[in-house]
């Protein structure tokens, strides 16, 4: 097995607040291989964004307790000096965010903002950086890129802005692209375009991608691997096929059921009942137990471990494998 591009080991990110400690990420381990796509799925507050912001060093270390290791290309990003981290950000790891409306600085021209990224890492002239910025805009499919480069973000549509963000994130040909809910704020047709663009660029640049989303439907199509997070922990990991066709965790089932299906127009969407747990008072036992329809006594006392199902596929659930397989066949997959 080749050396992973990014390996996160037992990562904990806790925020002390006046009400108690918010355990945003609570012991998460995973790895991303070069060039592959990892989907990270979960409701908001599941810790998926926080874990990757921690990878980028974008969590304020003064207000958070961070434990574990984040090994990127052999370096522990949690312990490198600020300057080195800055050299990696934007250069080796690019990141795009949920809301392209607010993620670009409103006062600077789009081209200049991309060029700024390049200039932060490469010793070239402004003019050259400008040319490359235009080139990047062209590569993300923005028409009349030289003209567009001279415009301000507010003159771009939402999809265009996200393309510009992607251009910025990929302008230095990073090894890893973290896409944090890149399509959530966009309308459906644009969503598909953006995801296709990420796909295309991934193969073009040979970049590994971490695609963070709350929408399981999005990742299934675009990811090699998927990990499902709940209450700051991994509750199921596996290949896209594993998660989509053999989900082994009631929470994953809930996520699957809440995907809108074009075929089943009459059937109402089934959201997962209940609310995500408070990260300060995570329920005893399985964190999902208050919302789980299959909950039994053990779930309320013992926290399930992430146990292998087969191959790479693993899930954290006290239900027996047989029961879970039966339920999947009878209740979950039936609707797909």
């Amino acid at each position: 097995m080749p050396e992973p591009l990014l390996e996160v080991k037992n990562l904990r990110v806790h925020f002390p607040t006046e009400d108690g400690i918010v355990k945003a990420v609570d012991g998460v381990s995973f790895a991303i291989q070069p060039g592959e796509t990892l989907g990270v799925v979960g409701e908001s507050g599941s810790g998926k964004s926080v874990s990757f912001l921690t990878v980028m060093g974008l969590i304020n270390r003064k207000s958070a307790i961070v434990e574990g290791e984040v090994i990127f290309q052999g370096q522990d990003l949690l312990n490198v000096p600020k300057e080195e981290l800055q050299a990696i950000r934007g250069n080796k790891i690019g990141m795009i965010f949920q809301d392209p409306m607010t993620s670009l600085h409103p006062f600077y021209k789009v081209g200049d903002q991309i060029a700024e990224t390049i200039l932060a890492h490469e010793d070239i002239s402004k003019k050259e950086a400008g040319t490359r910025a235009v080139d990047m805009l062209r590569r993300v499919g923005i028409p009349r890129p030289d003209e567009r480069a001279r415009q301000y973000p507010h003159e771009f549509s939402g999809g265009m802005r996200q393309r510009a963000m992607i251009a910025m994130a990929l302008s230095l040909n990073p090894d890893l692209l973290i896409a944090d809910e890149p399509t959530t704020a966009l309308d459906v047709t644009v969503q598909a375009q953006i995801l296709d663009l990420i796909d295309r660029l991934q193969s073009e640049f040979n970049t590994a991608v971490a695609l963070i989303t709350h929408d399981l439907g999005v990742v299934a199509e675009h990811c090699d691997y998927i990990q499902v997070m709940y209450a700051g922990r991994l509750v199921e990991v596996g290949t896209a096929d594993d998660i989509y066709y053999q989900p082994m965790m009631p929470y994953t089932w809930g996520l699957l059921k809440s995907i809108p299906l074009l075929t089943a127009q009459e059937e109402r969407l089934q959201p997962i009942r209940g609310l995500p747990p408070s990260l300060i008072h995570v329920p005893e036992g399985c964190p999902f137990n208050p919302r789980c329809p299959y909950v039994f006594d053990r779930c309320r006392v013992e926290t399930p471990q992430l146990l292998p199902v087969d191959g790479f596929h693993a899930a954290a659930c006290h239900l027996s494998l047989e029961d879970r397989k039966r339920i999947v066949e009878q209740e979950v997959l039936e609707r797909t």
Partner: peptide, 21 residues
């Protein structure tokens, strides 16, 4: 603001982030 996070994610140093953005 989100764009401040973007600025840091771009790899700008803290001075550039504060002053320029």
């Amino acid at each position: 603001e989100d764009y401040m996070r973007t600025a840091r994610a771009k790899g700008l140093n803290e001075r550039q982030v504060i002053v320029k953005h």
